[in-house]
Design a protein around this nucleic acid. Structure first.
Lengths: 218, 218
DNA sequence: GTCTATATTAGGATAGAC
DNA sequence: GTCTATCCTAATATAGAC
């Protein structure tokens, strides 16, 4: 279904299948799976509705393909960093930097993934599979183990407060991802317009590494 | 529409309008507005579909009523704490405690509000209005101002690192709310089942205040 | 106020020409 | 492979009896 062969056309026009998937990506992320309309996807792709079924058979299969793609995108690069042999502080700094930049480009991804996972219980299995695949690809067999060892080493050396690996990861993910997922909420509470939010994220690029690393000082 | 009069029946059966709103609450939060079905709400309320239209005219009005309710619920009590005259450390501890307990009882609220706000742009205005109402109700005219003053005072006194009020609030909200909003995501990554997640939140009740307050030490 | 029955439209899916 | 035309079910909404 996916041809890894060399791309012939450098123009934005890909083959129909690719255009449809891209269009579906846009529409599903914007409206959610339940709110998306096949017609809107077809329009966005510049093809006929029937062609969506030709390539993807049904709306739910198309939705699954898009979800897989977005979920992977959210964790692929971060997983590489966490699985690398960099120093722990360095990992933290790089993860924060990466997320704040990546999510600035794809700001709707977190809210979409959160929505899907909560409304569509069988997406959870799909998500677990995506995570498993990413883990298998990364240099380290288990990113979590490596990270846990790094944390415990630092704690034993007295360079860091005691913290469990899950809490460490949850805190890091929360601080990076939540502001994007809850952007309209934050903007309402803090009286931000788009410009205000952008500056807020810029500020965050320096605030967050300090905040997080400081929190772990012994 | 809402009668604040004394409740006649102590049984779970309220009047039809209340039962419908409760049922709508459950179903909309579970499925999202687009995914919810009027039939399912009617079943959940134990009434006929037509009655939903009798009381709420249309699905979108019913959805708006539910959203208002859930959004208020997310911020009402927290706003009381932040607007109180308690010490800053105390506020932090009480907010964390409140959120972790409240969200344990209504774990789907954050994901629902996030979904709605991202998929349904005009919910944003509704949300702003809900926040404005809560602010007007609370003892303090502007919770944000009060909090900002407390933060700056602590910073000037050298008892806290410099941090802007928006970053302070965003960090606190992120750390409290995200794990619930992204529960299936966290569970997949950290290999948690329901039991594991519950223990994780229990652990978090002690971890989080330490983490947050420690992050702000000078 | 609450029901049954029905109207109406929207939207996913397919058949078949080209 | 891509289109036009059509089918068909699901879902919101209303009419009208009780």
């Amino acid at each position: 279904m996916v041809k890894p062969a060399a791309r012939k056309k450098p123009e934005p026009d890909t083959d129909a299948e690719g255009r449809i998937l891209d269009a579906a990506h846009v529409v599903f992320v914007r409206r959610g799976t339940a709110g998306a309309r096949m017609q809107e996807i077809a329009d966005e792709a510049g093809v006929n509705k029937a062609l969506l079924h030709y390539y993807f058979r049904s709306k739910s299969r198309l939705a699954a393909a898009v979800f897989q793609r977005v979920a992977r995108g959210l964790f692929l690069r971060v997983s590489e960093i966490l699985g690398s042999d960099a120093d722990l502080d360095d990992k933290v700094r790089r993860v924060i930097q990466l997320y704040l930049e990546q999510l600035t480009k794809t700001p709707y991804a977190p809210a979409y993934v959160i929505s899907e996972l909560n409304q569509h219980p069988d997406r959870a299995a799909q998500f677990v599979e995506a995570v498993r695949q990413i883990r298998a690809q990364s240099l380290n067999d288990d990113v979590l183990d490596t990270l846990g060892k790094q944390i415990r080493r630092r704690v034993r050396a007295g360079e860091m407060r005691t913290i469990s690996t899950p809490q460490f990861i949850a805190n890091l993910a929360s601080l990076c991802i939540f502001p994007f997922a809850a952007r309209p909420m934050l903007c309402a509470i803090l009286n931000f317009d788009d410009r205000g939010f952008t500056r807020f994220i810029e500020e965050r690029k320096t605030v967050l590494p300090e905040f997080f690393l400081n929190a772990l000082r012994p």
